[in-house]
Design a binder for these strands. Sequence first.
DNA 1: GGCATACCTTCT
DNA 2: GAAGGTATGC
Length: 401
Amino acid sequence: MTIVTTSTTIPHGFKALPLSILQLSLPAVLKCGQSFRWHCFEELSEYRLCLHDRVVCLRQTANHLFYRALFPDPQPTEGQLSTKDNETLVWLRDYFQLDVDLLKLYDEWSLKDPVFRNIKERFSGIRMLRQDPWENLISFICSSNNNISRISKMVQNLCKEFSPPILALTDPGSTTLTQYHPFPSPAALGQPEVTSKLRSLGFGYRAEFIQKTAHMLVDIHGDGSEEWLLNLRQSSTEHARNELLKFMGVGRKVADCILLMSLDKKEVIPCDTHVHQIAVKYYGVKSSPGRSTMSPKLYQEINTRLVNVWGQYAGWAHSVLFTSDLKSFSSYGVSSTPSPQTLLKKRPRIVREIQTSTVHDSPFPLEDVAHQSQTEIFVSSHTVSETQSSVAERVKRRRRQ
DNA sequence: GGCATACCTTCT
DNA sequence: GAAGGTATGC
């Protein structure tokens, strides 16, 4: 550890948080396909994200993270400001999971895995974000058959279309004005007209998935939808995964992305063709030529293998490998125009019902019953017959797995 | 339960 | 024709 004796120059209006770039590399983490909503201003290495009531701005040097938040009118008074700054700091610590010592993890992975040891120097500071599950869910429904650049544009358009801006800011080092939109609510995306709107925005077949998922969520949990998703953090990996798989457009891979990136399931490894290739190339998983889609069996095999190698934080290690792979194959074309995020939200929340009580009172295994009660709630309260039957089918199908 | 195919769009 | 998959039907 180097001791820095030089005084740091803090950018005007920013606060400084001592933090090694080895613990967190903003350029690596914010553009590697975890979040798609950060505005990245490469020239000045400033990064901006729109939360529900503020825009968080970040810069960084080797040993400091600089942060500030900008607010819509009316501006906070002098007295309110320190509270607001503190909220931003609390959010930062949570979002970047700063209590997790990444250097220690890198050391542990290096001891266990020579492959990791080889790449660690060149890919430092890559950690898992702790994202908002709702935003994460919708973003990753967009990710099927897709690339980072396009997903970023889609998510940006989604926010622009379905969520009013809270603030307009001039870009750093420029006179261009950018509007900052928070991530839209489940209620906003559940409206029936959303499908055609998303189609026209170039979402393709994912348009229907998004509207249906949002509608399903709101139909069951109403204003408590986001909180319900958030509470999956307390559930077991298996239970949370089964819940996620009920949503339209969510298969195993997307579900695992959400588990890892917003539901605290740090051991989960989302397995796509890319990860498959890495597993074959370096970790002794046998290749299966001529197979277009990955079978559940192969998926499980890769997962088991990699968790054996990396341990508890396997999902985190995977993201380092994955990012290194992205770069080395130069498919790292990332748009410089993503858009806004969540948390610090001020929406009314309503009690969510049944679920908990039914689950706990039942003699059946947790997962099974949660599944069942979910189905019943949904089907009985649904109004559109077509959607009703298709979802019932889907849930039935899922139950068989 | 395993397997094949369509699906929006962009990139190679 | 593949790409950072999923739904559907057989």
